[in-house]
């Protein structure tokens, strides 16, 4: 049975249609990545799926045994808030030192227990967030652009880590990213989003689909491709996006 099944999701912010008729499922143990340009509704979709937001239309069904481990896009830790890594791992629930240390080791940040959160590097910070999510013993790990601010080797290492975690714990992984090339190699399934689901399937299928190429260009080599895509691609279903207008502004 699917861990999460979304049917016909629709979200509008004021006049803007952010998500339109989005269907998707996540099954146990698979790594699903949502890719899409800026403003394509990736984070909104993620927030609807985890329940941080109620969609205007459509429904989200969650498996009764669903346990989400959430890795937020960023944390605003005010410098006035003193927080060591160890204390952070005990939020929101107390965990014994051994379990917490094991999660820290699994996330590749074993030596950081006593360090203040404010003094961590971007990569260390992401690993701590991952360790905290693992403490929830999730069967679904949800990551919102987990490698923002990391350099290429850093983010490649982080995605390898995610894959290892999946192999070790068997949890499903849902992430949002726009680092296509890295994501492509680690995902079981890719969902290409631009307000609606443009295309989905295995990384190979998506990379070779005309919709995907229309959005990201023929090369999957990252950021530059984002600026080369054209929006005049056609769909076999109607979508609420004004592709012509986007083309003008692109």
């Amino acid at each position: 049975m699917a861990l999460i099944k979304a049917t016909g999701l629709g979200v509008s912010f004021g006049e803007t249609l952010v998500l339109n008729d989005v269907d998707m499922t996540i099954s146990a143990g698979e790594i699903v990545t949502i890719v899409g340009p800026n403003g394509s509704g990736k984070s909104t979709l993620l927030r609807c799926l985890v329940g941080a937001m109620t969609p205007d239309r459509g429904r989200v069904d969650r498996a009764p045994d669903l346990k989400i481990g959430y890795v937020p896009q960023k944390l605003m830790i005010d410098p006035t808030l003193p927080l060591t890594v160890g204390r952070f791992l005990n939020l929101p629930r107390k965990t014994d030192r051994k379990t917490a240390q094991a999660a820290l080791d699994q996330a590749g940040a074993g030596a950081l227990w006593d360090r203040p959160m404010s003094g961590l590097s971007g990569g260390q910070f992401q690993r701590i967030l991952l360790a905290r999510a693992l403490l929830e013993r999730p069967n679904l790990l949800v990551l919102d652009e987990p490698t923002q601010g990391l350099d290429q080797p850093g983010s490649a290492a982080f995605y390898r880590l995610i894959e290892e975690v999946r192999t070790e714990t068997g949890c499903a992984v849902l992430m949002v990213s726009h680092e296509l090339h890295v994501v492509m190699s680690t995902s079981d399934r890719v969902i290409c989003l631009n307000g609606h689901v443009c295309c989905h399937g295995t990384p190979e299928v998506v990379a070779n689909s005309s919709e995907y190429r229309a959005l990201f260009g023929t090369g999957t080599a990252g950021a530059l491709a984002l600026y080369r895509h054209e929006h005049s691609h056609s769909h076999d279903h109607t979508c609420g996006h004004d592709h012509a207008r986007e083309k003008e502004s692109a």
Binding site: V50, I68, Q73, P92
Partner: peptide, 19 residues
């Protein structure tokens, strides 16, 4: 206390933790 701290760090994290 714990819920307040979590919500202070990140509203989304609080949601995901059931607060």
């Amino acid at each position: 206390w714990s819920a307040l701290l979590t919500a202070t760090l990140s509203p989304d994290l609080a949601h995901a933790s059931g607060f």
